[in-house]
Design a protein around this nucleic acid. Sequence first.
DNA 1: CTGAAAGCGCTAACAA
DNA 2: TTGTTAGCGCTTTCAG
Lengths: 321, 321
Amino acid sequence: LDPARAGRVADATAARVARSAAELGYVPDRIARSLRTRRSGMVGVVVPDLANPVVGPIVRGIESVLWGAGLACVLVDTDNDAGREADAVAGQRDRGCDGLILASVTRHSPVPVALMAAGVPAVLVTRGTDEPTLPLVSSDDATGVTALVGHLAALGHRRIAYLAGPPDVSTTVTRLGAFRAACERAGLDPGELPVRSCAAYTVAAAEPVAADLLSSQPEITAVVAGNDMIAVGCLAAMERMSLRCPEDLSLVGFNDMPLVGRLKPGLTTVSIPQREIGAAAASLLLDRLAGRSFTTAAVLLPTSLVVRASTSAPRPGALAP
Amino acid sequence: LDPARAGRVADATAARVARSAAELGYVPDRIARSLRTRRSGMVGVVVPDLANPVVGPIVRGIESVLWGAGLACVLVDTDNDAGREADAVAGQRDRGCDGLILASVTRHSPVPVALMAAGVPAVLVTRGTDEPTLPLVSSDDATGVTALVGHLAALGHRRIAYLAGPPDVSTTVTRLGAFRAACERAGLDPGELPVRSCAAYTVAAAEPVAADLLSSQPEITAVVAGNDMIAVGCLAAMERMSLRCPEDLSLVGFNDMPLVGRLKPGLTTVSIPQREIGAAAASLLLDRLAGRSFTTAAVLLPTSLVVRASTSAPRPGALAP
DNA sequence: CTGAAAGCGCTAACAA
DNA sequence: TTGTTAGCGCTTTCAG
């Protein structure tokens, strides 16, 4: 029955066996097979929060590749609690998962180093650790932010603020770093550009921070938000302060989440290939599991700038000292 | 080591065994255990599309209950392809899943009957079949729609149209049925109220249908959409036709998806307890798996009307013949 | 090239 | 109350 050794067996016998199997309704028992081969055919996927609209499509990409390879996708949600990550991974390992895909990692998480040390096949998605550990598949956030800053600079903005996400996730530092570098390249002094940090990538966390930023730094003409949710929080703050977007202030986000293009004004942002990111991560893990050659470095998938109505040239006079 | 028979064993022996186990780093092998007990400790979860913002939170609710019970959540996405459902379920069964949760079911899907016949513990979520089969956990859509129609009727609307979703999913018929019943109770003739069907619960599918409805039935003063995405599609059509919301037309959706409250105007809709729905479905399955008593009928969780700016009284004169 | 047998690690039934 | 044993269904090795 083993297709791998067709040919090494007399055709007649093979046919006879196959027919009997079909007649008897024989279906191999995967669990018994797992016990014998020490392979479960399962991959553990750990996500920080499935309710987050960027996570769903990524998992969908992962699952679709795993399914295609005959592997099961075992999902655990850490509820954005970094402490639950180790438990989640332990649970997956205990279940005998052949490999792991982690979308939940924080910058200083001990889990990836432990997995490396234990030789467990694993891949990171979206978020990485400060010290390079496991291979990471993500969007090319730096290039995306650079495009956003370039867009704003081309419109004439020079007083640009940044609303960052929580400092413990790598995307926050990557995007902020790219923001500063891009501003510098545009001839601005990054040290002079206001930067504020939001406790979470949520509207609720961002709104008060944005309100504080806008009232204390009225001279800024544009805001780059760490992601779309933070941008929406900023929009909410502006509304309360009767600031118009983009007339009084241009605003950009990141991720192109559902419906942000239908807000008033439609949000200028960067769209990322979520599904492909998940698919690439799964493929990378499959290569590793199959013993094929595979990237050990980061894989960054291209983003694209989506210009909508939340950005325009600063109003005349705003740039005067 | 078995906690179930503590007490039936001398304490000294139990302690000795436990200590040795700890010293040797003994960890029971779940796969071997599964082979012996014929229980995998896994539950298969089949979803139609993880990228859909209502699905993520439901799965999160499911996973959180399963994790709490020590069970794994094995996820498959059918990509909204009804044909893949049977394959997905077969895959899960083949893997030895102890139970199944199906969020992907269409009205005439043969899968639930087959599962019932095979005696497989399984539960439906969100969507059910026409013929009652497996227990269903869902939001109480009928009551939600009734609240929406009541809200519109109280504002004075009498020419109300319905933009339905695809006819093959149960939520479409449930909501449409509730719409008709509620209109009738409000003293309107359901036969005279325009109803149009969209091929999918998406903005893209809804927009042309809405445009056609609005141009052919200019006398309507309010639209009830099958869900928020269809409502957004209607909003897009209105924008292109220079119809104002709510001045020219009131609009309501369903589900309270992320950001619909931040559109202009904020969408009046019905919010559903997504996470609780998932959690309830998982609990129901756990009861079944544990041989406890469990509901075999539908479980409908309460919704709540969220009134925002997309609804107002019809403009004066709109109701004249 | 084919058939037989051992054993993966566990649990449940049984004997002591 | 404790220790022993058979066997879950498969794969792999070894003898025929």
